[in-house]
Nucleic acid binder design. Structure first.
Lengths: 195, 195
DNA sequence: AATTGGGTAGAGCGTTCGTTCTAGAGCTGT
DNA sequence: ACAGCTCTAGAACGAACGCTCTACCCAATT
């Protein structure tokens, strides 16, 4: 057995949350999908369903952060980097049959009212991604205020574009958002000095 | 009795879907909230839960379209119009305790896999809103290609910014998106001739 | 060899789900 | 007065929910 049971549970839950949200995902489905049993799940996560979901969201947050970081680092210019990022997301989304969108959006929207630990985990994930974009912009010489506002806008727009792309089963919204975001970033006319 | 039972069901369901999504909303909760009974619900909507949800999403789609149209028409310049729109959304979101976000996003994300009538209703709503923005841009003299790509980007960005704002319980993401979208729109340098 | 305890296995608890069903209330046309 | 209709009312069904519980496996420790 290569991967530990705990990891299998987390990974399977992450995918299920991404596709069907929190309420739509049952503990027994997690058990089946991760090849674990109820006993194992409650052994590793005495907190029950919510605890599993929190771990899964944190996992998804880090996983996507790694992907985002790679994509941002692959291009020196931030405008180009964002563009390449949306292209990657569009390709992945299409490949999954428009099913694997933002890994936290569905769960986040369902648990908004009840400031739970789960909701906090979603917020953390989103803010972590935003910080990656912010750092990229700062590293390219953007003024702090501009960079901050741009970073939140970039993450928000990508988030929304992914939803739109999923609903319309088309890469176009994501690609359009990428092009427009690149244009927006370039409009600040910061010549990237370093790197 | 002012409003008909059917309308009460649709309106109550729309609000519940907006806040807790499709799976998170139960038929019995709809009955309680709308002051109807199970009998009434199944009388007006023989299709069951999904039929109620479809009607509710369509209702939400039109309602938000009206709000969007008013907001867009309140300003001659499209950049200003989008900005004012995000301000309105931010205010409403805050007022609701960060709970009343996009009325279709939650439901849309949960039902992505199963190309149901519900998913189609969500897509229709989104596309209807996009069309309003598109018409505004076209009416202000934007070239068709630019207008189309801008419209999808505007809707996507607002959508995503609303989610980000909800998760962070802050108006800032929505306001930042509004400012940046306005900047983006202005960057096309189209002087609005007519009107 | 015996014991311990982390991990596995799943039957079963109480509750809630969406739906169906029967019964009746309130009105209209004859 | 009566039949025929729309709409209301909620009990009851099977299925699925999250969770608890006991029993068991097996490698490491004594």
């Amino acid at each position: 057995m290569q991967t530990s049971t705990r990891d299998r549970i987390v990974v399977a839950t992450a995918r299920l949350l991404q596709r069907q949200g929190y309420v739509g995902t049952g503990i027994k489905q997690i058990a089946k999908e991760s090849q674990a049993t109820l006993g194992s799940i409650y052994h590793f996560f005495p907190g029950g369903k919510e605890a599993v979901a929190v771990a899964a969201i944190r996992h998804s947050g880090q996983e996507f952060a790694a992907l985002l970081k790679d994509s941002l680092d692959s291009e020196p210019e931030p405008a180009e980097a964002v563009l390449s990022c949306t292209r990657e997301l569009a390709a992945g989304l299409k490949e999954s049959g428009w099913v694997d969108g933002c890994p936290v959006a569905a769960a986040a929207l369902e648990t908004l009212g009840a400031d739970s630990e789960l909701q906090q985990a979603c917020a953390d994930a989103l803010n972590g991604w935003e910080r990656l974009v912010l750092d990229k912009l700062l590293g390219c010489g953007f003024p702090a205020d501009d960079a901050r506002e741009l970073a939140t806008t970039v993450i928000s727009a990508i988030e929304g574009a992914e939803v739109t792309a999923q609903v319309n089963r088309s890469e176009e919204p994501l690609l359009a958002a990428g092009r427009q975001l690149a244009r927006l970033i370039r409009s600040y006319g910061v010549e990237t000095a370093r790197r």
